[in-house]
Simulated scan of single mutants.
Amino acid sequence: MTEILSTNKTRSLKRELDALVSTFDASFLSTDPLHFVHGYKRDRDREIAGLIASCLAYGRVDGIKKSVGRVLGAMGKSPYEFTLNFNPAEGLRLFDGFVHRFSGPKEITCLIYFVKQMIMANGSIGGFFMKGFVAGDESIKAALSAFSENALSLDSFPVYGAKKLPKKAGVRFFFPNPNDKSACKRLNLYLRWMVRRGDSLDFGIWKKVNPAQLVIPLDTHIARISKNIGLTTLRSPGWSMAEEITSALRKLNPKDPVRYDFALCRLGILDRCPKKKDALKCEKCLIRKVCVL
């Protein structure tokens, strides 16, 4: 991959982005769906709550919070116990009327039913993920691809009424594949939560995965801000852009390149970084010294 950062640029970026990370710490969790996952004490509950929250992390923040709260509220105090005892027919009734943009009762029911099968077969979602994981891989791409393919091959008959998951089944949206050029934002977000350790944001539950292998969860905020500070030269969001941004961030922190994700995303979510040059906002911006806008 082409190097896009000079030595001087790397130094200045690291200085400014490290300061940004210090500013946007766990006290800003209320602006993120990760907030819900912190409501659980046991890793087995956090693992399931995290997948639910990340899968629904698309659309407006208020809508995401409402939808995640609705689903996790229905699962009670322990998403793990709820999932072990989950019955798809009962799930369809329980989530009747649920709508999160284009995800409805079938999508949530099938997602939870998939998780139940992962646990029954491999002990946990993490155990299921590890089936396609190779410790020596530079990035998580191959493992993520295998995870999605394996998930979508699980039984879905009680929900969709077909032996094979229909091509238009909405649950497919929750399991994109990097081989299809998708940025896989929501799954990369989930991986960040499960793998990163060492701070009060993420949980580090999946010990066998190296944080250095993670890829940035690329959304519209990260794509736009990354262009503004020279982390990518690409125009179209997708897996290639996510890889290029991650490669640039590895020059700043080889062991933990996605540590900057939460802080950079706050700039967009909190409207601290305007879409167009705004003298008032830009003057107060925490990364104005490295911005090319």
Score class of each variant (00 low, 15 high):
Ser153Trp: 06
Ser153Leu: 12
Ser153Lys: 15
Ser153Asn: 13
Asp155Arg: 14
Phe157Glu: 15
Phe157Tyr: 15
Pro158Cys: 10
Pro158Gln: 11
Val159Met: 09
Tyr160Gly: 01
Tyr160Thr: 02
Ala162Tyr: 12
Lys163Trp: 08
Lys164Leu: 08
Pro166Ala: 07
Lys167Asn: 09
Lys168Tyr: 10
Ala169Arg: 11
Gly170Ser: 10
Gly170His: 06
Arg172Gly: 11
Phe173Arg: 15
Phe175Ile: 05
Phe175Lys: 10
Pro176Trp: 12
Asn177Tyr: 01
Pro178Lys: 08
Lys181Thr: 15
Lys181Gly: 11
Ser182Phe: 11
Cys184Ser: 03
Lys185Pro: 02
Lys185Gly: 06
Leu189Trp: 02
Leu189Gln: 07
Tyr190Gly: 03
Tyr190Ile: 07
Leu191Cys: 12
Met194His: 06
Met194Phe: 02
Arg196Pro: 06
Arg196Asn: 11
Arg196Ile: 09
Gly198Cys: 02
Gly198Ser: 00
Asp199His: 08
Asp199Leu: 05
Asp199Trp: 08
Asp199Arg: 06
Leu201Ala: 11
Phe203Met: 09
Phe203Lys: 04
Trp206Ser: 04
Lys208Ser: 14
Lys208Asp: 14
Asn210Met: 04
Ala212Gln: 06
Leu214Cys: 09
Leu214Pro: 08
Val215Asp: 08
Ile216Leu: 15
Pro217Gln: 10
Leu218Tyr: 02
Leu218Gln: 03
Leu218Phe: 12
Asp219Arg: 05
